[in-house]
Design a protein around this nucleic acid. Structure first.
Lengths: 335, 335
DNA sequence: TCATTCGCGTGAAACGATTCATGAGTCAAT
DNA sequence: ATTGACTCATGAATCGTTTCACGCGAATGA
């Protein structure tokens, strides 16, 4: 593998000069620069990041560790993060913990060994030991889609209580009195908060609430939930799901069972992923600004790792969700 | 940042011994080992991969560079690749070129600088200059979801010609004579092959084929295609889409326009992503074994980079696609 | 003419691990 | 008592960069 010293020899200069050509071209005379550059070309020299990083002590890579890449919501976060990273000349590597704490731990220790610049983290469990050991590595991290106290870390999130309330209010206002909430695992703060939002609205109304908890936040769990809903009596006339994957699963289960949506059952999802609007009965959903979430988190992380003088203050950014009403809750468009 | 020499000092041994404790524990006596391990614990020592890699000359990371992470098909490939990588103690970093050649180039040069173990590549354009310069870096790569001549590189793909034929035959056999093929950009080999498959079947039948090309392989393009289809006369009674995202877009556009699926228009997608089966009118689709694709590609790459004696022969693995028939083409289930 | 500045280039010292030849110590066998 | 075999630990060399103090020569100013 050709290294900097091969280039130096070929160009008849010292290795220090080659390094300067690559990193501070203005410090080198035009003629030498040209000679070195053509040597680089001819030899096909590619700088070795590991050596560079060893010297520098920090890498040019930031990591994004998400709960589930199968959920387009997180893919959008990744895209946002990549956008700002690129502006800073950094790269993002995306890791998928698949909701599993052991994989989260494994990735975190890998990232610590890599000495990544920082980590954008959407953790399975905040209180977990996973983070506890990672903290000692001194690698900065920012929470994404999870609010934490500012003294612990910066975080960028969306107000899930409001989001839940938004959905619930919409259902109450459209006249539903028998409402179900299909929630994901309650170890997830997002799920707990959305439920809190739902309850705050429904408790103050005359509607009745049943809560179903699923083990995963995916389409298959949604289908399961659908069959449970079908067995309930009285059967709810509206269901709010903790995310769009669940909602799509419920929708499919209902359509398969001949239940008309929204006539017999209104459905509200959460995240407003692209597939929500693209469903044959387009889903009403609570939109989260996923891309902006990713951008903002990356910006915070970059600010924290800027080689400035003073440590930057931790920040807590909270975005507001927005209800997007579509056919799955509006009778007017049906049929 | 605590390094190996801090540990050595604390434990009262040489750095070589610490290294042995970490990498070849059996070569160290039990008592020293215990002493070193507790020093590691107390100091919170985390090995620095960049130094390790500098010495070793190769990294423990393999990369997967895909066309579009927004497409669940590629997420499944990533999962497959990660499964086998994990078995080998490797890590995968997933990069999303978003169908853009410039990002592909940028990622490839980053990966070359990182001296990754190898790259699983789903390239925008095989003939591209992107690859040409990457080749010089000597980093092994395996094509995923794209067949190439075995003398160039190993590849793992699915037979797209057969896949296209499968879909077309299904439509012909269910009696359609006016068929549309909504294809993605023809620079993609996948798209060209699927079209070839479609033509091979339809040319031999009495059905008529119209081909619409879209600029992207996403849901929005599918919606566009739907409106174009609506303007055609005679209007096709069946449409095959080059992937499920397009198909979902078409489905949505049609349902919004009041066209009944499958009664007035049958739709076939490609990839069989989870959302295809979860659509309110579940999509008939050509299934590709995405996870196995990822696994197989990673296995090939690992075989090529095994530090064995002889270079391993290049391999070309081709999987067979499979038609999954659902409601979007079968009148029997409708209403 | 001499001193000062400036522009360019050099060479060596890091960075933090791995690896390997070497040596120190112990034990058993001759 | 000497040898050989074996177990552990050592310390130096090495990987490919970056960085920095320094030196050389030319240009500038007095």
């Amino acid at each position: 593998m050709v290294g900097i010293k091969d280039v130096a020899r070929r160009a008849g200069v010292s290795i220090g000069t080659v390094s300067n050509v690559v990193n501070r071209p203005h410090m080198v005379s035009a003629s030498t620069r040209a000679r070195v550059l053509s040597a680089i070309q001819e030899l096909g020299y590619v700088r070795d990041e590991s050596a560079r990083q060893l010297r520098a002590g920090r890498s040019r890579i930031m990591a994004l560790l998400v709960l589930d890449l199968g959920n387009p919501f997180f893919v959008d976060i990744a895209r946002g993060a990549e956008e700002t990273a690129q502006d800073e000349g950094l790269h993002v590597i995306t890791c998928d913990s698949g909701h599993r704490a052991d994989r989260e731990v494994s990735y975190l220790s890998m990232l610590a060994e890599q000495r990544v610049r920082g980590v954008l983290l959407s953790p399975v469990d905040t209180s977990g030991a996973a983070l506890e050991t990672f903290r000692r590595s001194e690698i900065p991290y920012v929470f994404v889609d999870r609010r934490v106290p500012a003294d612990e870390a910066s975080s960028v999130s969306v107000d899930d209580v409001t989001g839940g309330a938004l959905a619930a209010r919409h259902l109450v206002e459209t006249g539903h009195t028998e409402v179900a909430f299909v929630n994901g695992p309650s170890i997830l703060a997002q799920c707990r908060d959305r439920e809190a939002g739902v309850r705050s609205v429904l408790d103050a109304s005359s509607a009745r609430l049943s809560v179903l908890e699923t083990s995963e936040l995916d389409v298959a769990s949604g289908r399961d939930a659908a069959s449970r809903l079908l067995g309930m009596s009285p059967r709810p006339t509206a269901v709010f799901c903790a995310n769009d994957l669940l909602a799509l699963g419920v929708l499919q289960g209902m359509v398969a069972a001949g239940v008309r949506v929204p006539d017999e059952l209104a459905i509200v999802g959460y995240d407003d992923i692209e597939f929500a609007g693209a469903a044959a009965v387009p889903l009403t959903s609570v939109r989260q600004p996923a891309r902006r979430l990713g951008r903002a988190a990356a910006e915070l992380l970059i600010a924290e790792t800027a080689d400035g003088d003073e440590p930057v203050a931790r920040q807590t950014v909270v975005f507001e969700p927005e209800l997007v009403v579509r056919a799955s809750t509006s009778l007017t468009r049906s049929h």
